[in-house]
Design a binder for these strands. Sequence first.
DNA 1: CTGATTGCAAACACTTTGCAGCAGA
DNA 2: TCTGCTGCAAAGTGTTTGCAATCAG
Lengths: 173, 173
Amino acid sequence: MPDSPRILRDLPRVAIPSKQDAMPYEPVCALFRRYLHGQKLKFTPERAMILDAVLRKESLFDAEGLVDDVKQLGHRVSRATAYRTLSHLQDAGILKQVFLDNKQSYYEVIAGRQAYDYLICVSTGQVLEINSEKVRRLCEEICKEHGFDPLSHQLQIYAVSPEGQAKPAGGKL
Amino acid sequence: MPDSPRILRDLPRVAIPSKQDAMPYEPVCALFRRYLHGQKLKFTPERAMILDAVLRKESLFDAEGLVDDVKQLGHRVSRATAYRTLSHLQDAGILKQVFLDNKQSYYEVIAGRQAYDYLICVSTGQVLEINSEKVRRLCEEICKEHGFDPLSHQLQIYAVSPEGQAKPAGGKL
DNA sequence: CTGATTGCAAACACTTTGCAGCAGA
DNA sequence: TCTGCTGCAAAGTGTTTGCAATCAG
């Protein structure tokens, strides 16, 4: 019996916050500063704001949503800076990029959190987060078989939800 | 012990054909014609050429590569037509779209073939196809837990290959 | 001080779309 | 004939990049 997953999207591009505990800012910030220092990069106010906004995210988000969030917190950063910082945050191992469609990238915090996989209804567009230890183990097993050193994985399952089964026509992948 | 997987990409965007048996044209073509007919769409020479080129593909491919292939076969189609036909081929269940990066879409024939998952080396860019029955079963299990009706899935594992472990710096996801 | 960073706007690349002429069924 | 189809070129859109001014260390 799985713990009931939270709904991420009822429609594509509309993220609904989940209930996962937010990662505290301090430790991750320290991690980021350490990373930046090691790369001879600088810790700027913009990067701090972005990290703050990122850590408030409880589920998938995209670059534009992030810029909006920063604005909502009373600051502002350019899109360019947001993208550049997102890239650094990936390098620092704080978040990962998720490819769900061919329109844009999504991001997900991984520092101190478990990675999620996604169960996507092609009919309603609903997206469920699933947190499966089994998937993780299987990925590690596959890596081991090929002599690879596992880093992360991404699993999307396309299916039809109970609600979608009731609806007339099936959507496309 | 896994059967040794074929290398799909040594560098991003460069697909190397695998050894999988090509799907015969006739049966899939019949499938496509049936689909088109049912949708009151037409079976045109362009669509036939594209389907032909698609079925010669033995691994991941992208829209531009497809247009090139058609040209190499002595014909030509516009990019617009290629995209439109790829969309219909997806709807017909003949191929599926794969999202591996934020640059473009990849496609993969699924009609009469088994879906593959990917083991991606973030250091060298190498991509291995993996064909895991275990992954498929796990996805079905997850769907069942949530009352979803499984359609397809996509798994990407990001890791460092043995060769990549030798190289200096690790790439980013 | 000095090299990294920022915001802006232009550049990019893949994909989609409007349209006029063409062509399956 | 009557829709749907094609190619073209233009439009779209998320992301990246060149550049001058600015700022962190």
